[in-house]
Amino acid sequence: MANYSIDNQALAFAAIAQCAKMANDVARRGVVDSDQWQVCVASLVCTDPETVMDIYEPVSDLAAGLDTLIKQLSDSGEGRSIEVTKYIAGIISLSRKLLRNDNALAMMSQRIDQVKRQLHHFTINDEAVISNFASIYSDIVSPLGGKIHVAGTPTHLQQPLNQKKIRTLLLAGVRAAILWQQVGGKRRHLFFSRKAYVKSAKQQLTQF
């Protein structure tokens, strides 16, 4: 996928931001919006897309991510979250390490294929499926280094299902970060193209 448009980069970055925001929501409040969850987690089993839009369907469910992008990258800093910033940075770092590790990529592909077969019998929101996604993150991605430490409310963080949801969201974030790089996204763009990303995000939000 080689469409290097700012709109595609902004949308892929919005998906990273949405995963980071939701991970923070689960950790802090123990809640997650079902539509926002669905569009991000379903991207993990979309392995042969032709466009970015194919991965995130409906794209309107990335509205929270586009809004988070605006808050995180705007010059004003209004509404910016330190935790979300930290998670986004960690997700991008892990994605770069994953892309350089062919063995890890092959293992991840095999495990994702197993989940796709599992989805013949379960929905993507089933705890068994969430457990499998979470274990992919724990077994393959997290050991690559730069472990992401998620802070939150102990009563929520101690719940096993919430732990699995957070790992699943981080995995979906890594998937989005790989996509972001595939469409030309680079870390320097978060400094030098911030205004272009924010402008694109605002324009895309008006289309929903």
Rank of each mutant, 00 (worst) to 15 (best):
I178V: 15
T155S: 10
S200T: 07
H156P: 00
Q72I: 10
H149R: 12
S200D: 02
G185K: 09
L119C: 07
I148Q: 04
Q118R: 14
G65C: 11
F191W: 10
G145A: 02
V183R: 04
Y87V: 13
P143S: 06
I88E: 12
E78F: 09
H120Q: 14
S131W: 01
I70T: 15
V174M: 05
L157F: 08
I148S: 07
T68E: 15
L94A: 06
K86E: 11
L161Y: 11
I178N: 05
I92M: 04
H189F: 07
Y137V: 11
S193P: 07
H149S: 09
Q110Y: 02
Q158F: 02
R175D: 08
I124C: 08
G185L: 04
D67Y: 13
A134Y: 01
H120G: 12
G79L: 05
V141F: 00
P160E: 05
V183F: 04
D67N: 14
L119Q: 10
Q182N: 12
Q114K: 13
S81M: 07
I124R: 04
Q110R: 14
A201D: 13
V115S: 07
G145I: 02
R96H: 06
H156S: 03
K199C: 06
G173Y: 02
K202T: 14
G79Y: 05
A106V: 12
A134V: 03
A177E: 08
Q181K: 13
L62C: 09
F122P: 06
L205S: 03
F191K: 11
D75L: 14
A64H: 11
L73W: 01
G90I: 01
L157Q: 11
Y137Q: 02
A128N: 09
S76I: 03
D113V: 12
K202A: 13
F133L: 06
V84W: 04
S200A: 15
K97G: 10
N125V: 07
L73E: 13
